[in-house]
Design a protein around this nucleic acid. Structure first.
Lengths: 192, 192
DNA sequence: CTCCGTTCTTGACAAACATCAATAACTGAG
DNA sequence: CTCAGTTATTGATGTTTGTCAAGAACGGAG
């Protein structure tokens, strides 16, 4: 069951057999139905996740009631809420877009693990660095590309997203209104 | 000399006297003149930094030779390049916009520290989490706000930036062309 | 199958930004 | 002080997105 985490981590660091065993032993897995809210804006985020099956969306609602999609997390993605482990209210929602199977983690459990197995801290640090690099890369991408280019980039690199996610959510992810995404898509099909 | 790092870290975690001593002891400080390139696109990033004095700009140049400013790092900011500690070429430039005094770190030195003082790993992990939260917050801000709102946000929260940074660089940071920033500023002064 | 609510598309028009080109303001070297 | 190079502003014009409104397509409940 924890094999997916191991395969995820192995892409970034070498894990000893002992560490693999450790991870396998310590994962807590839960399942959620579609539309479940894992976290609401304003609540305290005391869990982090790793997606084994399904897809989770992170989004925020601003003062004008506008929804902004921060990220889609499909299989093999770690989700660490912005306010994870802090005592401040969350700025984001976390919603299951499909039935999901997730690995759950929380700060207390984490601390326990760190104390029991010091190597765990290195693993978490590396994992944090990986996520950081990914986040910074998407930010750079976002600033560098126009909405149309961002759409094409997704078409190329995450094509399954289009089948799994409603277009109005994709639009808010791209930073445009649904109407604009619709026209953008029309433009692209005409020019081919 | 390392006092600034301690004051920075103390904002986020409680440091024991021993840890403070440790940090003070282990910092390597260097100075650079204005316009020094700390890192070039395509090179390997084997240093991370903490700004004691001056301001550093991170930017990328895309296929169309367009410059995109990723971030400005003034005093009390940590700089960890996207590709830090990896063997892949950097996607970013790092440039001193003023004469700078920086604390230097590198992966080997880090590892040495981790081995010598295991508590150092916790400190680094927390620091990583803080940076991650900041990054995610700016990303959300960027997606949520229009260029004009982003400009006003900077006016309010980082007013000194306007005195220290050329407008064309600020424009690329806001995600618009210099001409548009110029008009935006004109609009704002007229309406007051 | 029908109906209702959600999601997606289309149209018309306004607002903001991009682009190209010219000029003005500023800065530092000599 | 003068000149050259960089940085900032302004103007004219086109493209893209936003907005408001209406209708089409889709999907699930009954």
């Amino acid at each position: 069951m924890g094999n997916e985490v191991i395969s995820y981590l192995s892409k970034h660091i070498k894990l000893s057999p002992r560490q693999k065993e450790l991870i396998e032993k310590c994962t807590i897995v839960k399942s959620y139905t579609k539309e479940t809210m894992l976290l609401r804006q304003g609540n305290i985020a005391n869990e982090s996740y790793f997606v084994l099956k399904g897809i989770v969306r992170s989004y925020a609602i601003d003062d004008n009631e506008q929804e902004t999609t921060i990220e889609f997390y499909p299989e093999e993605q770690a989700i660490i809420p912005l306010t994870y482990g802090k005592r401040i209210p969350s700025t984001h929602f976390l919603e299951c877009l499909e039935d999901c199977t997730l690995i759950i983690n929380n700060p207390e459990y984490e601390q326990e693990m760190f104390a029991k197995y010091p190597e765990f801290e290195s693993i978490c640090r590396v994992m944090g660095e990986v996520m950081m690099a990914q986040l910074q890369e998407s930010f750079t991408d976002y600033k560098t590309r126009k909405p149309e280019e961002r759409y094409l980039h997704i078409m190329e690199h995450r094509p399954t997203l289009l089948q799994r996610v409603p277009l109005y959510q994709l639009a808010s992810y791209l930073g445009i209104k649904p109407e604009s995404l619709s026209r953008l898509r029309k433009r692209l099909t005409k020019n081919n």
